[in-house]
């Protein structure tokens, strides 16, 4: 089992609903976020192209955050989901330095926090909060090892990219372009 997400940059309208859904679902403290939307503008008017990307933890296969954690608080759960165990985290910040996506932040309570792929919902068979609220349905969540999953289908039929693959982290969020 390998959970992954495919996000269609051509369908995304940048409404930030995913951000709000995540903050509500996971009680993210004010002033922080576990996911965010990036708008990339290329060219000059009138020849302009825009790419919108909803970004979050990439739940990398080769996770530098898990590797550098001195206490083992950052660890892999089923399906390759990267989680932080709050009671093991000492708040040293090593994982924050190690993440090329800046997906982690220091929670006001001290521990480090980040996207969990809404593992509590996934275990109940539901989609993560961000995926389930997307008004354009531009996000697909699923198991890469299941040939019938929506993610595999999208990745089979569309061109895609991942973020900063040169960092060597093997990210598992794919952007359909």
């Amino acid at each position: 089992m390998r959970y992954a997400m495919a996000i269609d940059t051509r369908k995304c309208v940048g409404c930030s609903d995913c951000v709000i859904a995540c903050q509500t679902e996971n009680n993210v403290p004010l002033g922080f976020c576990r996911d965010w939307v990036v708008e990339v503008v290329d060219g000059t008017y009138p020849n302009v192209s825009i790419e919108l990307r909803s970004e979050r933890c990439n739940h990398c296969d080769n996770s530098p955050c898990v590797r550098c954690c001195p206490t083992g608080a950052s660890h892999f759960e089923e399906g390759g989901i990267v989680l932080v165990e709050h009671n093991k985290c000492i708040g040293c910040g090593a994982c924050i330095q190690a993440c090329p996506y800046d997906a982690r932040y220091s929670h006001p309570e001290g521990y480090v926090d980040k996207c969990t792929f809404c593992i509590h919902r996934v275990r109940e068979g539901k989609d993560p909060a961000c995926v389930s609220v997307c008004p354009t349905s531009c996000m697909y969540f699923g198991d890469l090892d299941d040939p019938n999953s929506k993610v595999v289908n999208m990745l089979k039929n569309r061109k895609f990219k991942s973020l900063a693959p040169e960092a060597g982290t093997k990210p598992q969020i794919f952007y359909l372009v």
């Binding site: 951000v19 965010w36 939307v37 990036v38 708008e39 503008v41 330095q97």
Partner: peptide, 22 residues
Amino acid sequence: MREELFASGRNIPNIDPYLNIW
């Protein structure tokens, strides 16, 4: 010209413009 913007709540003083944790 290439410009990257954060369209959502990502432009937050606690995380951006860069995470200076140490």
